[in-house]
Simulated assay, not measured.
Amino acid sequence: MGAPSRVVRIASIPAMFVAGAMIAVQAQVNGRLATALGGTTSAGLTAAVLAFGSGLVLVTLITLSSPARRAGIPLLRGALRDGTVPRVAVLGGLCGAFLVAAQGLTVATIGVALFSVAVTAGQSSSSLAVDHAGLGPGGHHPWSLPRGVAAAFAVIAVALAAGERLVESFSLTTAGLAVLPLLAGAGMAVQAAFNGRVSAIAGPWVSSLNNFVIGFIGLVAVWLIALAIDHDLRPLPGQWWMYVGGVLGMGFIWLSAALVRVHGVLVLGLCVIAGQVITALVIELVVNADSHVGPVGVAAGGLTVVGVLVALWQTGHGHADD
């Protein structure tokens, strides 16, 4: 498969921003669902299972409904047998499951702001390492100063956007819980790389299906253990929007699998971060009536865009990323 054309590269940029917006909204939705179910560990994991399970049902129906999409399944099996796709690449769904579980377990306590800071820090640093190691379908994308600067812009931007809330809510408990989204953010880069490898052979729908199947199995195993320890859950809430996390997750995973080969893991990650930050600002303005988004928040959103532009500029010069 040849290198993506200039038109494809340009057209893919807004789609990567949309993928980030989906993650921001998903974190809000899954956090609200976990709170409605009781706010406990088992409630958080239950919210994650519901979100991942609904996504699994949808992506299964869509993938199996078309012979063209189903054709990717034997292609993936063959690629796994002959080593074209390493077997570890099919485990990307575990990273996605961990992200959704982290949303349910931490957002209600530490807030979306701190969650975003931790995810961003993990995702930016891990994306550099994943690209440099050549784990993604685009191969080796060597580290460079512009790529490092672009990643730093993303971390600084989200830290600025969440700064006031971090100062107000910081404690050993929140710092400890922030480790989960930090690790989840690092896993997002690995997930994008692995899903991209699978998608390059079998297509984005089969890659998404594999992602949901593997992630759901891992998530249910942990959920059953948590439920055996603490099964005190509140009844399921009646608000329909609390159950759209799976749809949002499916959209994010499909877009990531389809687009990661276009610009590489780092640029995909930076665009996702920019989409997350900008959407989080909108959520604060629209959903949280008592919140205040000032010049610092707006500047943070601008910084994420600057970081993306730096990475895209570096990608467009030379052939280091091609």
Rank of each mutant, 00 (worst) to 15 (best):
G297M: 02
V8Y: 12
L182D: 12
N211P: 02
P74F: 05
V287M: 15
A159V: 13
W143R: 04
S291Q: 11
S124W: 08
N195D: 11
L37T: 06
H132R: 14
A202T: 02
G111Y: 15
A133V: 06
G238N: 04
L182A: 13
D290T: 15
A47F: 08
A192D: 07
I217G: 06
V117W: 10
I225S: 10
I13R: 11
N195W: 11
A154L: 08
A11T: 14
R32Y: 05
V167R: 13
F153P: 11
V117T: 09
V272Y: 09
M22E: 04
L135H: 07
A178N: 03
C271K: 01
V107P: 09
H263K: 01
G249I: 05
Q239R: 13
T60W: 11
W254V: 15
L94W: 11
R147P: 00
M188D: 02
P235I: 04
G148Y: 04
P4N: 00
I10Y: 14
R197C: 02
G139K: 02
M242L: 15
A151H: 06
A51P: 02
V155T: 12
T46H: 09
G302I: 08
S125I: 15
A129H: 02
A108H: 13
S169E: 15
S207K: 02
L33Q: 12
V213N: 01
G203R: 00
V306R: 06
W313I: 05
G245M: 10
T174I: 08
L99H: 00
G302K: 11
H317D: 02
V149E: 01
G93F: 10
I253V: 15
V272G: 04
A184F: 12
V213D: 01
E284N: 14
A221P: 02
F52N: 13
G148T: 02
G215K: 05
G55W: 11
P74C: 06
G246C: 07
I253E: 00
A151I: 04
R165K: 13
A11L: 15
V112K: 08
G92P: 10
V100G: 14
